[in-house]
Design a protein around this nucleic acid. Structure first.
Length: 272
DNA sequence: ATGGCTAGCCGCGCTAGA
């Protein structure tokens, strides 16, 4: 089965891209079974449920006007409606809609999937940066419990953290900045410390492969990007993971999101 | 040395993203 994550930067604007991309994956030997989306930027009553269902995907989501918003799309023919749906981090008071989670029954046992839009942080030392660190702490504490309950767990999303210098096009220029600071990287390591593995780094990858490029400065053309969108897998899933790739193609389309999809292939069968 | 683009808003220039 295939899992993917994509920060679409407005689902209203990017719905055609999402549908086109999902349709294009149908031609591969393994289509997408689960797609986590971030930055929907729309309230729940504007969520394009019917269009996505027509395309063959059911959804769980939590949104708000203007900012944030996350969803998990699941292929109707291969996955049942999820159970234990959670919106936001339990016990963490937050008006910003950044987390949705659900458990999908599969032939290989329950699969816990979390779509997360980590706070940006704006600048090291800012109020938003402090919020980012508090949010990361709450997420990590919650995930410790989640992992105890769900051995097969995948955390997909826009982490707004480039874990290593090789995930940054110009590490010298970015040194110590928001998205790469030691505090943020320590938080990323703490997530790994729970027993989660960066699916992308399990495999040999071409150098200078990123998931986000600034709209400005011809950044995509110059490949001046960051790898900040990740798929972290619990041990059983990491062992079942056979590939993890970044699909740059949607970033080349007209009116693209500034992020592009990350895809993981697991040797885990959905329901027959 | 800085900003350079994009989306959304109730806007007719701003906030926020990363």
């Amino acid at each position: 089965m295939k899992l993917a994550t994509w920060n679409v930067n407005s689902l209203k604007v990017r719905l055609p891209h999402v549908l086109d991309w999902l349709l294009a994956q149908e031609d591969s030997d393994q289509p997408i079974d689960l797609l986590c989306l971030q930055e929907l930027k729309l309230p729940d009553d504007k969520y394009p449920l019917a269009e996505l269902e027509s395309a063959g995907f059911h959804s769980i989501y939590t949104g708000q006007k203007t900012y944030n918003g996350v969803a998990i799309l699941a292929r109707t023919t291969s996955l049942p409606t999820p159970t234990d749906v959670v919106r936001n981090i339990p016990g963490f008071e937050d008006t910003q809609q950044r987390v949705v989670a659900g458990t999908y029954a599969t032939a290989g046992g329950p699969l816990r999937v979390i779509s997360a839009y980590f706070p940006n942080g704006q600048a090291v030392g800012s109020d938003k940066f402090a919020y980012k660190l508090r949010w990361l702490e709450a997420l990590t504490a919650w995930l410790r419990d989640e992992l105890a309950r769900y051995p097969q767990l995948a955390l997909l999303g826009d982490y707004n953290i480039a874990p290593e210098d090789r995930d940054v096009h110009d590490p010298a220029k970015w040194e110590g900045e928001n998205l790469v600071s030691p505090e943020e990287r320590a938080a990323f390591r703490a997530l790994e410390g729970l027993g989660l593995t960066d699916a992308f780094r399990q495999f040999e990858q071409p150098p200078k492969l990123y998931s986000w490029w600034d709209y400005r400065m011809l950044a995509f053309r110059r490949n001046a990007g960051l790898r900040i969108d990740h798929i972290l897998l619990s041990d059983p899933l990491a062992k079942a993971c056979t590939a993890c790739t970044i699909d740059k193609v949607p970033r080349t389309w007209e009116q693209p999101s500034d992020h592009t999809p990350v895809v993981a292939t697991l040797s885990l069968n959905p329901l027959p």
